[in-house]
Design a protein around this nucleic acid. Structure first.
Length: 595
RNA sequence: GCACCCGUAGCUCAGCUGGAUAGAGCACUCGCCUUCUAAGCGAAUGGUCGCAGGUUCGAAUCCUGCCGGGUGCGCCA
């Protein structure tokens, strides 16, 4: 996991006020020189939510101060306590062992959190200083192969990261790198031309073409060792030659069939609601990459070994990085070396992030090292963000072998299940129209699939079981969407508006307080996620927020409450809905208004 | 052989820049819809944090070794 080192702004007004108060207290109690050893930013970063509301809202652990002040943490907590009590947002502060536990005034939480969420000021906070430009490359599907649920993880992860970074104020471009050349294309076209007897379907040609690849691969395997083998090899070589020369019937066929695959990709991207600022085609870097590799060789930066050319990285324990094959053609690494240069040149980015599964870890280490060795300084701004694979219960997915779940199968089954189990009843009751059912089913399927793909740690393998995925109870995307829909409906019915008279002091139950405190933490969680390039923190946060809201909703009547309390609770509910909507959007998940 | 990843409740996972009683969901058991969406809420049950050492006032978290599972390591992408 790479740490992005962006500089965190002190964006949380409550944490900032507490940090200033603590900093001031250190100065008062221990003097200027002691205070100088601990910066405001450090204190700010040491604040966090207390384990439970009985102890406090926000906790400050004094352990890290012990060294600088040469005193025991409990003693420090005790000595600072009186001096921080005067902070205007603090209702009470308690020294509990080594911790200083703060209770924040309702008025402060109300204005700085609920009010800020409802006015959207909360979402405009500047989370990082500086104006870095990042590029995130994700979704590298091959044409002529089928898109399966494994590709969905990459798509959901990359999309969420791009959105999180953009929310955080980082200028981020999203790019894709489809593989439209290589032997897999030749195998596909070979089968399609010489062995296929099926008619080309009118629809879903991309998926069908993927089957041509799988069948081609299977047949070639079967004929290995037979008299057919030599003939097959010649045929494939001829196909590759035509593709390279960009002429002949197979080149024409490539152009035609590639479009089918691209249409499938675009269908998936439309469904997922992702857009790329740039499509880098593998075919477009093919020739230039080889040219560059030859230049490097001419400059003496590469070595020849066993007839092939590459760079010896054994000093860096990275083995030998092969860049020009014996037959004079390039490889995947050759292209990635060129692509990296192209990215920085075209976009002038400060960071170049690759969302690619962890089997490529060695590949990227080699590519970045090669770039570094040839004097490309930006090499250190390249980061491989790796994640584990999606597997089926009976093992790894392989489009080569054909044991995969097509991506659109998951989508369609999910949408159908949602309609059958939840939405069709509205249709039967004549409450919703067909179009509304369809749109909502798509939104909820988005929630279920995307949340499922990004809620676990990047390093954790996902074993995909369709039946499990179709269950939508508990910690799922639809749970979060349901919270949003409930709030939206509530605000409609009770006619929420931002000029309602509120009195924050009326929010006194545990569930109300817990919800307010949780809302306060939103931006902190996002900033942390961006720094670690992780989505699961935001997922967990939104789920916990949803749970707190549902408890509040069950325990605290709103419509029936006395006027002022009603308005105040409605403001709290609305703020939760806004945070949920913005949070879901950041994960690429739509927030339905009803479901 | 070398490198990286994983091992926490029956199952799926959080928690890992050391800190306050190890948390969820699913499954199982029991309650809650004449009241704002029950895709919900509440309660109960369930753990030698793979094993063994070490560092520390303090280790699920850091270090070392081992065990178990996965992936990668020159003419595929």
């Amino acid at each position: 996991m790479s740490d992005m080192n962006a500089n965190v702004n002190l964006f949380n007004p409550i944490y900032k006020a507490l940090a200033e108060s603590i900093s001031h207290a250190i100065k008062e109690v221990y003097g200027e020189s002691a205070a100088a050893e601990v910066s405001l930013a450090q204190i700010y970063s040491m604040l966090g939510l207390a384990p439970n509301l009985k102890m406090g809202h926000i906790a400050f652990a004094c352990f890290p101060l012990a060294k600088a002040l040469r005193k025991g943490p409990p003693q420090i907590a005790g000595e600072l306590k009186e001096h921080v009590a005067s902070c205007p947002i603090v209702a009470d502060v308690q020294a509990q062992g080594p911790y200083l536990n703060f209770f924040i005034k309702n008025e402060s939480l109300g204005e700085l959190v609920i009010g800020a969420a409802n006015s959207h000021d909360l979402f405009n906070a500047e989370l990082f200083t500086g104006d870095e430009k990042w590029m995130i490359e994700y979704s590298q599907p091959n044409t002529h192969k089928i898109l399966h649920v494994g590709h969905m993880r990459n798509l959901c992860l990359g999309n969420a990261l791009v959105r999180m970074c953009r929310y955080a104020g980082i200028n981020t471009s999203a790019v894709t790198y489809p593989g439209d050349v290589g032997t897999h294309v030749a195998k596909c076209l070979w089968y399609y031309k010489y062995h296929n007897k099926e008619a080309i379907p009118a629809e879903e040609k991309g998926a069908w073409l993927g089957q041509m690849y799988t069948k081609g691969n299977t047949l070639l395997e079967e004929q290995r060792g037979t008299e057919q083998e030599e003939e097959n090899r010649k045929a494939l070589t001829e196909i590759l030659k035509q593709l390279h020369d960009q002429e002949g019937e197979f080149y024409d066929l490539w152009v035609e069939t590639k479009a089918w695959s691209v249409e499938l990709m675009k269908e998936a991207y439309r469904w997922t609601d992702v857009e790329f600022d740039r499509w880098f085609w593998e075919s477009e870097v093919d020739a230039p990459s080889l040219k560059y590799a030859k230049e490097l060789f001419d400059q003496g930066l590469l070595v020849q070994d066993q007839g092939a050319i590459g760079m010896d990285l054994s000093d860096d324990k990275l083995g030998f990085c092969l860049l020009i094959k014996t037959d004079g053609t390039g490889l995947y690494a050759t292209k990635d070396v060129e692509l990296a240069r192209k990215k920085f040149k075209e976009f002038g980015v400060d960071k170049n992030i690759y969302v690619v599964d962890n089997r490529q870890a060695h590949h990227f280490k080699q590519v970045f090292k090669v770039l570094e060795k040839v004097g490309f300084e930006k090499a250190r701004d390249c980061h491989h963000l790796q994640y584990e694979m999606v597997e089926l219960p009976d093992g790894a997915m392989s489009s080569r072998k054909g044991n995969i779940v097509p991506l659109m199968d998951l989508v369609h089954q999910m949408e159908n299940t949602i309609k059958e189990n939840y939405l069709n009843k509205y249709l039967e009751a004549n409450e919703w129209g067909q179009e509304e059912v369809e749109k909502t089913a798509t939104m909820i399927a988005n929630g279920a699939i995307k949340y499922g793909m990004i809620r676990v740690d990047n390093n954790r393998k996902i074993v995909f079981d369709m039946q499990e995925w179709l269950k939508l109870d508990g910690e799922t995307g639809p749970y979060l969407q349901y919270v949003h829909a409930r709030i939206y409906s509530l605000c409609q019915k009770l006619e929420y508006n931002d000029e309602l008279q509120v009195n924050w002091d009326l929010l006194s139950t545990d569930s109300e307080t817990a919800l307010m405190v949780k809302l306060m933490d939103f931006n902190n969680v996002v900033a942390n996620g961006v720094q670690k390039l992780q989505t699961l923190g935001v997922c967990n946060y939104l789920y916990e927020l949803g749970k707190l809201f549902n408890s509040f909703y069950a325990e605290c009547p709103i419509g029936k409450a006395e006027e002022e309390l009603k308005h105040t609770r409605l403001a709290l509910a609305h703020a939760t809905g806004e945070v949920m909507r913005v949070g879901l959007d950041m994960l690429g998940i739509p927030a339905p208004q009803k479901m």
